[in-house]
Write a protein that binds this DNA or RNA. Structure first.
Lengths: 202, 202
DNA sequence: GGCTGACGATACCGATCAGTATCGCGTGAG
DNA sequence: CTCACGCGATACTGATCGGTATCGTCAGCC
């Protein structure tokens, strides 16, 4: 009856229950090498356990992939929710905060890329649960951006939300392939310009 | 990379030499399923030949991947060169042409994504020849855009080139994951707005 | 104290992978 | 005519894949 709820991201790795260690190992390896490139044996080894233990907690490798992506998506959502709570009536600050969150993440994922963009490349089947999860997450993110642009009083909130989405995704892709330097600063400048293009209603 | 090119190639599959049939099959399967998901046997079968014939023309699977990406990159470069030849002294028209080229390609790759973005996700090793090829291609594309923005008289050509790059990449990602509707129209409107934001020097 | 169930270790399964060896056929060049 | 060679077909190698079976051990709980 061990609680499966989120344990704060502290380095008590050695004492973490197997399921959490497996998810940590999966996060590490899937992000670094890709889904198909990583075998369940490698994940189990890095988690300091065995394949059998892994399969006691996850029915299949696909289920583990799905759970990993679910956690990543939840982390993003939580960060954005926190932003919303910190700036409840400042949609512009929330949008800039989201951009800052992505921009600050760029060095960390540098040359490796966004887990969603990378994973969807390995999930061509649109009916795959993990792919559905990614698409739902991206749709929700756009919906959030759309609401913020509307509340920010932008004249074309749909267009602005689409543009910001493009720029956020594109910055991650360009940071990964190394073509654009200082992608984070560029990203922030562009999003700020989109907002500055029209007077602040709030 | 134009779809008409691929179609015409495919309709004459029966008469093409084995090497070309293999490259066509690789294009089809790698784009649709991903690199790791496709075995050399599947490529040979779809090309109407055998693994042995494949290995007579390509030393390894990696070499075939590399050659495929080289062709895709060359197709993009050829299309942009053609644009440059058609509008030699109209950098704005060239930029819009590039955006149009990407926008028109979105429905074709819909929900499958750009081959470069997808492939780089499966090539985490930055020293891999195929990855080097992608990075060089993307760097060249940004260089081209940079030159065009400069010649178009934009006050901040580096910033504009980065923004257009972000938007082009982001549109492809968003079309793939299905979050943004009418990504092509959005893309064209944004690029046009970037250019319209400053007076046309040419 | 005795039971239950999670855990680690190991060995195994069938399938598939990239890559190789071999052989027979056909065709085109000398 | 003949010889060489590209080609298709088949069979094979050794490694690795996802997933399963089995067993000994140990910790918690009634």
């Amino acid at each position: 009856m061990a609680s499966t709820d989120r344990v704060s991201r502290q380095s008590r790795v050695a004492t973490l229950p197997p399921r959490e260690r497996i998810l940590d190992a999966a996060e590490e390896l899937f992000s670094r090498e890709g889904i198909k490139a990583v075998g369940v044996q490698a994940i189990a080894s890095r988690a300091g356990t065995t394949k059998m233990a892994l399969y006691r907690h996850f029915a299949t490798k696909d289920a583990l992939v799905e759970e990993w992506l679910r956690i990543v998506a939840a982390d993003y959502t939580a960060a954005f929710d926190q932003l919303a709570a910190a700036h409840p009536d400042e949609p512009r600050a929330q949008i800039l905060g989201m951009a800052r969150f992505i921009a600050d993440g760029l060095p960390g994922i540098s040359h490796r890329g966004c887990p969603f963009i990378n994973s969807i490349a390995e999930l061509p089947d649109r009916t795959h649960p993990a792919r559905r999860l990614i698409e739902a997450h991206k749709a929700g993110q756009l919906r959030r951006l759309n609401g913020l642009c509307t509340r920010a009083g932008l004249p074309d909130p749909d267009g602005a939300a689409a543009e910001i989405t493009f720029v956020l995704e594109g910055a991650q892709v360009s940071a990964q392939n190394g073509s654009v330097e200082h992608a984070g600063e560029r990203l922030m400048a562009i999003v700020a310009a989109v907002l500055d293009r029209h007077p602040a209603a709030l």
